[in-house]
Nucleic acid binder design. Structure first.
Lengths: 213, 213
DNA sequence: ACCTGAACACCGTTCAAGT
DNA sequence: ACCTGAACACCGTTCAAGT
């Protein structure tokens, strides 16, 4: 706290400082609590100062997504099997969203298309094509995996605020549901794991059915 | 729009009218434009009046989700194969979100656990269990499908506001990506279709691998 | 170049008051 | 019982002004 500064002098504020503070604030208090004014207060600066580093709030949110994505995404290892690439992508994204829960909702509502993400996407697509998938199928596959990871994080975030479906809430009228929950509530980790395993098994079946090599 | 009414008399406003107007407003102008004050104006009523029908804005949003879900979800046909149940659920949800784009973001952030949704969930789980899936696997499956549908709608909504990844944006540095997009941009429909097909293929593989019958 | 302060048009929600 | 109006504590953003 408390970057000391003479009134009316340069704060020496950089865009990177703004973004880091924004991510920290969103992670700590939730995205819905992220406001230009609160962020400014955090940085010991007037709200309007932020507009010098960011076009507007939209732009701030876009930048947060790029920031977290850049921090999370790693190029696929070379050489890699396609399952590794897919699972690796999912793991990267999962780790990023786990470390930055404040970014989850932002990830869900915008796509960060930057040179870096395009380059990583291209590399991943190449591996998948070499494994026998048609380029378009490979792209679909990446979308499906990304969607699954973000989707499960969103659902998880929703359940934090709201009671989830668990055994006590279910009662005796729903025996199969009760049986499903007998071993405890279904966690995000297990749901994500299940979805990814299932997707990869499905991909495999489709590839054998008829990829374009 | 003028529901005419004498000042200070009963407006005769019902909760159902409030919800219908809220859904209409969110679908027309987007969720981010949905405010208590604007909704009140739409209903020719003072903002505070709404608090008589709804606890607060959170409560309004919860009610919207329940409303749209109730309108969309149908019980699975009996008798039905498990693929039908899964695809049917996805189709119901997809139709509901297509008709009510204003509800997409709300669906992503909360889970509407009502007697009706629990009952439909139980019916679906029963079909899946009878098809050879363990109850917990069946629940995972439903979650995965719901997540996929909501996820693709979210991504689609994001792309409406923001340029998607398409061929012109990609250029020559990304040949595989360019090839993937050569037949036009990847639509939400095709992504959703791909994800569901893949999930079902994966489920099938898992069932044969070792369900608990 | 970088930062500020007042101002504008909004929010959700409380509370006491009206009919 | 149902609805209102003023008030409070917030928003994002523009604009002219300060150093």
């Amino acid at each position: 706290m408390g970057r000391s500064r003479v009134q009316g002098k340069h704060a020496g504020l950089t865009r990177d400082q703004v973004l880091r503070a924004a991510v920290r604030l969103a992670d700590r208090d939730g995205v819905e609590a992220l406001s230009m004014r609160k962020l400014a207060r955090e940085l010991d600066v007037e709200a309007m100062t932020l507009y010098h580093h960011v076009r507007n709030k939209q732009g701030l949110e876009d930048a947060i997504v790029e920031y977290v994505l850049a921090e999370s995404l790693r190029p696929p290892p070379e050489p890699a099997g396609w399952q590794e690439v897919v699972a690796g992508h999912a793991a990267d994204l999962h780790r990023g969203l786990t470390q930055h829960p404040g970014a989850v909702l932002l990830f869900a509502t915008r796509t960060a298309v930057t040179p870096r993400t395009l380059a990583i996407l291209e590399q991943s697509l190449r591996v998948l094509r070499d494994a026998g998938f048609a380029p378009r199928t490979a792209l679909h596959l990446i979308y499906a995996v990304a969607g699954a990871v973000v989707g499960q994080h969103l659902a998880y975030a929703g359940e934090q605020a709201q009671p989830a479906v668990d055994a006590p809430a279910v009662g005796d009228d729903h025996p199969v549901l009760a049986a499903a929950l007998a071993d405890g509530p279904v966690t995000m980790e297990s749901r994500l794991d299940f979805t990814l395993t299932t997707l990869i098994a499905g991909f495999e079946a489709l590839r054998q059915g008829g990829g374009s090599r």
